[in-house]
């Protein structure tokens, strides 16, 4: 559950802040010493960033996920397919794009496995990320869920999945066979 994960992370933050509070109580200053012996002022102001990103123009993509489909946009004028989906075709300066479903089949172009993770991904086990060229020639970047390491050239399948522990809908690859 995401609430458990969040509580665990918050507890760690609280622990380090409590230590800082104690330091301020004793020394009257939020100054610690780092491993090089340099004094560091630990900011007493905190900024928690969580952006709110408008998705009105590509909302059909999220409706598609709800139906188990990964959707892209296509320009009826020049035929360009956009994934990630976008509302405007900058080539034609056209904004009347059609919605199409992305094919399920792709081929691995490049991959990696992330061992050293960003803070906001620290609660996941090490994960594979793949760029695959789909059968319509358009690339998709996503996680790869397989027992073994993927290979360049390997066939993969694009699926709509729930990302745990958050539980939100997204898309991932798995081995084809």
């Amino acid at each position: 559950m995401i609430t458990d994960t969040r509580r665990r992370i918050q507890e760690e933050i609280d622990k380090s802040l409590t230590q800082l509070d104690q330091l301020v109580k004793i020394t009257k200053l939020p100054i610690i010493t780092d491993k090089n012996g340099s004094p560091l002022w630990v900011d007493v102001r905190e900024l928690d960033l969580r952006y709110q990103i408008p998705v009105k123009k590509i909302y059909k993509f999220y409706e598609g996920l709800g139906k188990g489909k990964v959707m892209a946009t296509k320009c009826p004028k020049c035929g360009a397919i956009y994934f990630p989906p976008q509302a405007d075709c900058s080539k034609c300066r056209s904004s009347d794009l059609e919605w199409i479903e992305m094919p399920a089949e792709g081929e691995v172009v490049a991959f990696t496995k992330i061992f050293v993770k960003p803070v906001s991904f620290s609660h996941y086990p090490d994960y594979y990320v793949v760029v695959a060229r789909m059968s319509n020639g358009v690339n998709v970047t996503a996680w790869y869920r397989g027992k073994d390491q993927p290979k360049v050239g390997e066939r993969v399948k694009l699926n709509v999945v729930e990302r745990d522990p958050e539980g939100y809908l997204t898309y991932e690859f798995e081995p084809w066979g």
């Binding site: 990320v129 970047t141 996503a142 360049v152 990302r163």
Partner: peptide, 21 residues
Amino acid sequence: FWEFENSGLTFPGYYALYATA
């Protein structure tokens, strides 16, 4: 939004994609 939010790619991760290819 599209490549970090879902994939958690790191800077070494991006270049690792080039390395495997």
